[in-house]
Amino acid sequence: MPGAKRIIGVVWESVRRWFDPRELRSVGDPPDYRFSLANERTFLAWLRTGLALVGGGLAVAQFLPPLPLRHLREAIAVALLLLGGVVAVRAVDHWARTERAIRLGEELPASRFPAVLALVVGLGALLLVVAVLAGGVGSR
């Protein structure tokens, strides 16, 4: 399958790039270090967002009583954990691409990810509100 091979190649290339600081330092000019530090802090803020999702997933698994629907609690927990992992990996990819753009004096990479994440979290919250209301009415 040439498609799968291409995807694996792209992923491998990205991972190699994240872990190779020399390659990042070889492009463009060294920027004002304040820009690099700001980029680093943005990355760390995204990482904490991901860790909050992971912590939330673990809290759901450990501190929520079993829900009426079988394994629903575990499904919510795993969904939150996977979302947190995706946020973390995307954070390092975005950090590397932003650092590259700063060094090359290009425009910063645009991303739809924050909007998508906001929609996913908002939709999840809405579903839970509906579930809580339905559960509250049903138990009465």
């Binding site: 994240w18 600081p21 990042l24 330092r25 060294p30 990482l47 954070a91 390092v92 950090w95 060094r103």
Partner: peptide
């Protein structure tokens, strides 16, 4: 810039 600590912690 370009340190390995970023991918490590991610």
């Amino acid at each position: 810039t370009g340190s390995r600590t970023m991918p490590v912690v991610a």
